[in-house]
Computed example of a mutant assay.
Amino acid sequence: MTWLPPFLFPLSHVPPVTVGAADVPDWLFALVAGPTVVGWIVTYVLAIRQAARDGRVGIPAFLIAVDFAWEFSLTFLLEQTPQQRQINFLWVLFDAVLLYQALRLGPRDYPHLSPRLVRWALAGVLVWASVIVMVGANEFHDDDGMYTGMFIQVPLSASFILMLKRRGSSAGQSMYIAVAKAVGSLFAGLTAFAVHPDHHLLQVLVPTYVALDIAYLVLLHRAMRAEGRRPWAFRTPRAGAPGASAPRVRVPQVTEVTEAPQSDDATP
């Protein structure tokens, strides 16, 4: 007999990870998976465009390496469902451009480090993440990338907030990137709920990164307003450019005071 009180929650008799995917109708899968694919493609395209305009990566550099590792590994290296491999292949094409931008522009976010060191660190993260994704997917028998994908989503969403804070400006970022990313991630979570309703870990991870996405939207909107940028203008001068509008500062009016003329009888 143990002196500890009885536990409150017993382990599942059947490990949820061993429960197979639900039989989801094709129309329902298309309804939730379609916006996931489109949302992330739009995110990638807008991030590439913004990085070209601002000279700063639109997605945190080290998470680009992780994202590329996930998509490349689950497309070309590890067994996955045919449908998921086709989706991943589309994403990896755009992510390859983002990875090139990360290697070229990423060091600007780490001025205290040499560009060479940052690029080697990015390469190291890419290799490490590829191994983790493959081992993790094999460990969970994650043949559609749900577990590994949801694990990546949480630090990815948090990294956008950290990127905004580290830069101290909205350079390389836009509300449209943030919205497209939030929509793609939200529907990825809904896809996970539909396909794996018994996988309770996913039911914790998804609300976590959705909350982080909402927080980033609010913080980015405030930052752009403070900089004098119009958050929802698609064509605006890049952050910090000479043509960008500056925050409005109210300058108090100064009333000129003149001395009253002194009379000849005034005491000096």
Rank of each mutant, 00 (worst) to 15 (best):
P5T: 03
F7E: 14
F9N: 04
V14G: 00
P15E: 11
P16M: 12
T18H: 05
A21S: 08
A22T: 08
A22G: 04
P25K: 05
D26S: 15
W27F: 15
W27V: 15
L28M: 12
F29D: 11
F29T: 03
T43E: 11
I48P: 01
R49W: 12
A51K: 01
G58Q: 08
G58W: 02
P60K: 12
D67T: 14
L74V: 04
L77P: 01
Q84F: 12
Q84T: 13
Q86L: 12
W91M: 01
L93Y: 00
F94S: 10
D95T: 14
A96P: 00
V97P: 00
L98Q: 02
Y100A: 15
Q101H: 02
L103H: 11
L105I: 10
R108S: 10
R108N: 07
S114A: 10
L117F: 11
R119M: 10
W120V: 14
G124V: 02
G124R: 03
V125L: 13
V127G: 02
W128L: 13
S130N: 03
V133C: 07
V135P: 00
D143K: 07
M146K: 06
Y147E: 02
Y147C: 01
G149P: 04
G149Q: 04
I152N: 12
I152H: 09
V154K: 06
V154M: 12
S159P: 05
R166M: 09
R166W: 03
G168Q: 02
Y176F: 15
I177S: 02
V179Y: 03
G184C: 09
F187A: 03
L190A: 07
A192L: 03
H196G: 00
P207N: 12
A211P: 10
L212V: 10
A215N: 04
L217S: 10
L219G: 04
H221R: 14
R222G: 06
A223H: 01
G228W: 05
G228F: 06
P231K: 10
W232N: 02
R235Q: 05
P237W: 04
A239W: 01
A241M: 03
P242E: 07
A244D: 12
S245K: 13
A246H: 06
A246F: 00
P247D: 07
R248T: 12
V249A: 11
R250M: 08
P252G: 04
V254M: 08
V254H: 08
V257T: 06
P261I: 10
Q262F: 05
